[in-house]
Design a protein around this nucleic acid. Structure first.
Lengths: 228, 228
DNA sequence: ATCAGTTTATGATATATATCAATTTGTGAT
DNA sequence: ATCACAAATTGATATATATCATAAACTGAT
């Protein structure tokens, strides 16, 4: 009797394994591990050896680099379907950045060797990974340029819209990050992040309840994001 | 008698085609086109359809995005072995950035369809492309973070060292870009780029002869790059 | 050789952002 | 409930960078 593999039901299967046969999935399934993380847990840490191919099933994470002086620079926030460990997984022995859960998260981890084996033997799978990787790195690079061209207010507006449009799809949401982390993401100081948020609040563009944000004047926020 | 294919002698063959058989090379060779570009020529333009897989055989190019307001943001400078058209080639129909020669350059262009066919049938080749792509996008992302964490002087020092260490490997070199382009690369104004260069000159760290730069105090430049 | 346009350069000033200091609010551990 | 510590907030001030104006030097086309 054939062993049942839970990957058959994985909602990511269509995307990730669209071109992998049942047999191949069965073989991957053996080494597959699912892991749960609380807010604040490291999923992996900069400098550690890359052993697994990891993708995010649920939750929200931040990718960041820790500089020599201990300061953190946030590269990007990633949600499910954004393959967390994709960047540099095929070119480096060790992680060049860290990934931390900023909401309760679940990952599915495969042995990197198994994934490489599959790439070598299954062209469709290789092409799927290439496409995904191309998309992910493209997005990270574009995001960085988008942020760079804006001033403080524009950057804050951009970040709020990013959470509203891409992540929570709702005018009301809980910020999954501290003001300090927003600062690390947009490359400005914590104080100025707070000041910009306060300005938006005073102008009636948003409401603030601690970590919770309500976007009141969506169009104004878009305008600030686009024209400062 | 077997037709001779010039790819056999291509200096990039080892890197790029290390895992491609003679027969496969022969097949690619048919559609392969070599193109020459003068300084200032577009190699491809943002928005245009992606039809070719392009890599740089010789010369130097800049990758940049043109914003809605006509301003340019330079993503990166690429030299041979950095595959120019790698980013987004597998995930998008149209180029999301432009590439222009900033020195006389030669590219080798393959049909994107042929490359995709090869990925599907040759696992080793697919893996090679994945590794290369991983490296390239990693480098672009890291570069962007490196620049972001520095102030004006640090950014200029970083750029000068980039040209000196990675591109020309010589204390004396001709800047392949205008002051304005440096500004577009580091995200500051042209005037401030000029001012920083003038400061370095006055401090005896570099000599300036128009476009030519001589690095006199290499160690000081490294220090400025690292600690502002 | 000349002209027009761009690049480089410099100074004065305005503006944006960082830094420093002090206070309040929120949070987790005991 | 309390304590210790991190996060959020606000104000005053310093600093860095942008903007505006002007001019010299360079470049390409005629």
């Amino acid at each position: 009797m054939k062993q049942e593999c839970s990957c058959d039901q994985c909602e990511l299967k269509e995307l990730f394994f669209q071109n992998v046969s049942s047999n191949e999935i069965m073989s991957l399934c053996g080494s597959r591990i699912e892991k749960n993380y609380d807010k604040g847990d490291y999923i992996f840490e900069q400098g550690k050896s890359i052993q697994e191919f990891i993708y995010l099933k649920s939750g929200l994470v931040k990718l960041f680099i820790t500089n020599a002086d201990g300061k953190e620079q946030i590269l990007s926030f990633a949600k499910p379907f954004d393959f967390v460990s994709l960047l540099s997984v095929f070119s480096q022995k060790n992680y060049s950045y860290s990934v931390m859960a900023i909401e309760e998260s679940t990952t599915c981890n495969l042995s990197i060797l198994d994934v490489k084996k599959l790439i070598l033997t299954n062209g469709q799978f290789a092409m799927g990974i290439l496409e995904k990787m191309s998309k992910v790195s493209d997005a990270v690079i574009k995001e960085s340029l988008q942020i760079r061209k804006r001033n403080l207010r524009g950057r804050i507006a951009y970040v709020l819209l990013h959470f509203r449009d891409d992540i929570y799809k709702n005018d009301y949401f809980e910020l999954p990050v501290s003001r300090k982390e927003i600062a690390e993401y947009i490359g400005m100081t914590t104080e100025n992040v707070i000041r910009a948020l306060t300005e938006f609040r005073k102008d009636g563009i948003i409401k603030i309840f601690g970590k919770a944000i309500e976007i009141v004047e969506y169009k104004k926020l878009v305008q600030i994001s686009e024209h400062g």
